[in-house]
């Protein structure tokens, strides 16, 4: 499927590691994902609120989560948000085989609405650009206006509004 990307490249993005205090005064660190993070990442998805699932991901059962992570972590760009030893957020850019990457962001329900998703997004884009990624796309539920506003703010443009899901793209 051929996608349209903005002519202009998006602005500058911060690169991990990023340390900040979130909206609930918690110390959060965003780092590039390493193999050591796998156990904590899996535990995050095991405790993920099923109500926060979108379009069938993440899976709900541990075995399915492990299989899904094996698939998406292969060859993708990833950053994780940590609160102490606990993994509370994950953002990924998974290659689509057509020289572009699909974006997905997940934040644990206990740590939502505190600015973590926004920093995961910019940190991931900064990391992926430094690694040479250029084309990024995503789909988002049209009624998810906070997410759409965040994506627009960093430079995503809407490419398809006809489907259930709205599609947006960005040039790094």
């Amino acid at each position: 499927m051929t996608r349209i990307y903005p002519d202009e490249r998006a602005g500058e993005f911060e690169r991990p590691p990023i340390e900040f205090t979130d909206g609930h005064d918690r110390d959060i660190e965003i780092t590039v994902y390493a193999d050591d993070d796998r156990a904590a990442l899996t535990e995050m998805y095991v405790s993920f609120d099923p109500a926060d699932r979108a379009q069938g991901i993440p899976p709900t059962e541990r075995g399915a989560i492990e299989g899904w992570l094996d698939t998406i972590l292969d060859g993708s760009y990833n950053v994780v948000a940590s609160h102490g030893e606990e993994c509370v957020g994950h953002a990924t850019l998974v290659p689509d085989g057509e020289d572009a990457h699909e974006l997905a962001i997940f934040v644990l329900d206990t740590h939502q609405q505190a600015g973590i998703g926004s920093r995961l997004l910019t940190g991931l884009l900064g990391h992926a650009r430094a690694e040479g990624a250029e084309h990024v796309w995503l789909t988002v539920e049209r009624w998810n206006t906070p997410a759409v506003a965040l994506y627009r703010k960093v430079g995503f443009e809407t490419t398809d509004t006809e489907s259930f899901e709205m599609e947006m793209s960005l040039r790094l």
Binding site: P59, I72, T92, V94, E102, T139, S163, E165
Partner: peptide
Amino acid sequence: ERTPTGKLSFSR
């Protein structure tokens, strides 16, 4: 179908 991140997607 599944997108690269594993999301379900439906054709028109």
